[in-house]
Design a protein around this nucleic acid. Structure first.
Lengths: 243, 243
DNA sequence: TCACAGTACCTGATACTCTCGGTCTCGTGA
DNA sequence: TCACGAGACCGAGAGTATCAGGTACTGTGA
């Protein structure tokens, strides 16, 4: 039998896919140029179209933000994976990943903040949280209420972090024999570590000895891998990879 | 005559200080109850007053957010400092601090997000960033443009993080002989680590073996102190404090 | 089979609604 | 006089609705 598909809609499938990707590219460029608080009107103008067209392809600003994050993650995913594969030890893999991450922060801070600082200048959905429903439940609802869920990969930050965490967990899991939950928890912490140190560095670098990005990369990778214990036992240790 | 003028001025100074503190308390309660996306109208209503009164004592929402963050930090500062002093080793101090931090995340997630997730639902100041002004400069401007500066303690997140970082840096500096910049960079990473793991845990805890907060505290402290190297060399190691 | 009306989707401009941060005006009381 | 507080007001930006014109597909009846 013939499954008749209405061509009036399907004839636009390729067009829709291409148009959507085009809008994501334009949005990313607009964010890079105009800052993370760019408005939808500005994004539409940068794409050479009108706001209503942007809303034809994305449900709302959060949807566009998610698409931009996915594009960033796809690009970054490849770089992180290549860096990890090129290293000969788990520690080396970690160092390369720290480098890639810090390079991204430095090269395109606007896009980084757009993706990781959810809803600056936006009005993304939120709803009241009833207090008293139990601590854990309240914590989950608070996260969901903010439209920021680090768990489900249905928000920009969640998707962004989950993808990066998955990659970062690999050297830890490779070096140790721990459960996947532990590896993910460590990776989440590690990503947080790089973020914390990287963002601090951006804000404090001047007048404080001027750590270069390479110096920070080395330190962060060392601290992540061996913690203060490593500094204690071998303050001048580079890496075991170079021995 | 001049004495009475000074007296009147002093009386109003005390009133202003008290009124301000009262508004901060009310705001904090409103955030706790209604969520981090609470509006200024809602905060004013919770304080039993009108919005224009809130704006009499705070320049804008960011100013109120900063005041709430300062109140949180003051309370947390004491708990973190007490925890650090009660521990006999730097590692123990770090573990206690991780515990305090995770307890706060769990007990008052709405306030935590209000302070650390800048500008959810808000329109805090931003201005365009000229691309091409050099990478470092652009990065700084991007941060400043977002109203989120991790450096200067004139924003909620900056003040919040700097205060916590300063405390967390202490065990590291005590255990090692590194520069204060390195200690601060490590502490920034460590705070990020706790945030990353804690926020991940809130979003992923269900169905993943159910790490309790205590279990997470132990793991985070261990990973922060010894990294994967510590797990490799002594997977079941508790702490040196218990030797 | 083919012509044609109907249908679906595209575009962009423009007007509109709503929320919320922030501002202004005015009356009151010490 | 001056600080207070209530309530009206303003504007930015997210999101929605309407319009007209164009292209291509679909279904129907001759």
């Amino acid at each position: 039998m013939s499954v008749s598909v209405d061509g009036r809609s399907t004839r636009w499938d390729d067009h829709r896919t291409a148009r959507r990707a085009e809008l994501v590219r334009a949005a990313r460029k607009a964010v890079h140029k105009l800052g993370p608080a760019v408005s939808m009107d500005e994004i539409a103008a940068a794409a050479g179209t009108s706001k209503s067209i942007v809303y034809r392809y994305f449900d709302d600003k959060a949807g566009l933000r998610l698409a931009v994050a996915e594009a960033v993650v796809r690009q970054m995913h490849d770089a992180l994976r290549d860096a990890a594969r090129a290293a000969r030890t788990p520690e080396g893999a970690l160092r390369e990943m720290v480098r890639v991450y810090l390079e991204m922060i430095e090269s395109s801070p606007n896009v980084y903040w757009f993706v990781t600082r959810t809803a600056i200048g936006g009005n993304e959905p939120s709803s009241p949280v009833e207090v008293g429903a139990g601590r854990r439940r309240a914590a989950e609802q608070a996260l969901e209420a903010t439209g920021v869920s680090v768990g489900p990969a249905d928000t920009p930050l969640g998707a962004y972090l989950d993808s990066v965490i998955e990659l970062v967990a690999e050297p830890f899991a490779r070096a140790t024999d721990v459960s996947s939950a532990d590896a993910a928890a460590w990776a989440a912490g590690a990503v947080g570590f790089v973020r914390g140190a990287g963002e601090w560095w951006l804000g404090h670098d001047l007048g404080l000895g001027g750590l270069s990005r390479e110096e920070l990369t080395e330190r962060v990778a060392l601290w992540l891998w061996t913690g203060p214990v490593g500094v204690l036992h071998n303050p001048n240790s580079r890496t075991e990879e170079h021995r």
